[in-house]
Design a protein around this nucleic acid. Sequence first.
DNA 1: GAAGACTGGTTTGTATTGCAAACTTGTTTG
DNA 2: CAAACAAGTTTGCAATACAAACCAGTCTTC
Lengths: 108, 108
Amino acid sequence: MSETLKHLLNVDRIIHEPARLMIMAILSATESADFLYLLNATGLTRGNLSSHLTKLEKAGYVQIEKTFVGKIPRTICRLTPAGSEALELYLNQMQTVLNKTITNTEKQ
Amino acid sequence: MSETLKHLLNVDRIIHEPARLMIMAILSATESADFLYLLNATGLTRGNLSSHLTKLEKAGYVQIEKTFVGKIPRTICRLTPAGSEALELYLNQMQTVLNKTITNTEKQ
DNA sequence: GAAGACTGGTTTGTATTGCAAACTTGTTTG
DNA sequence: CAAACAAGTTTGCAATACAAACCAGTCTTC
């Protein structure tokens, strides 16, 4: 069991951060979303959303596209292939660890 | 779905840190463990293990007991009731979020 | 019996974060 | 044209997580 647990140390920290996991999860479900949608869906402040998005972009996990709708700027975000791959890997790892741990806690 | 996800922002950061989740998971399975056992089981350095344990102790999640075996000091750690409660809560929350997210990623 | 190695940790230093608040650039409204 | 609003970005700071240095005591070995 220890071996499974040790995977935790290598878990993707970019995704492990709750705020970013939320963002990734939303993007994985919606294909694409704009800044305001994410803002509302996550409950983050604009500042935090902005910096998390930048971090995800630098990691190559989301692609950020800036356009204008009329004269108002609009930021559209979508998961990259690398992003959804990384998300899937993260989910599987965590899932495995959680299951192991849960069955253990139940045992006693 | 958004509501479930937002729980992520309130997830217990003490437990969310991978190193500490490992420690908590091990303790929940073994009832009690000494420093060296944890050291080996987690693969952490002594310094990190020490400081994570202190943090868990301050949070009231583990109880740390120092004894001597012969002339050699020995540190025994066990989960407190508050600790195992917090762990269980964390596991349930994460489990829920992961399941939601996984079914969403599968949909596409 | 003293030099060095080992046990079992704790403390310190540093670089990275995550968050909130302030700022920016432009647009619309009264 | 002044004030309010939209859509973000940048800045400042306090809290972390890790590694490396340190420490107190014990054992070995020559």
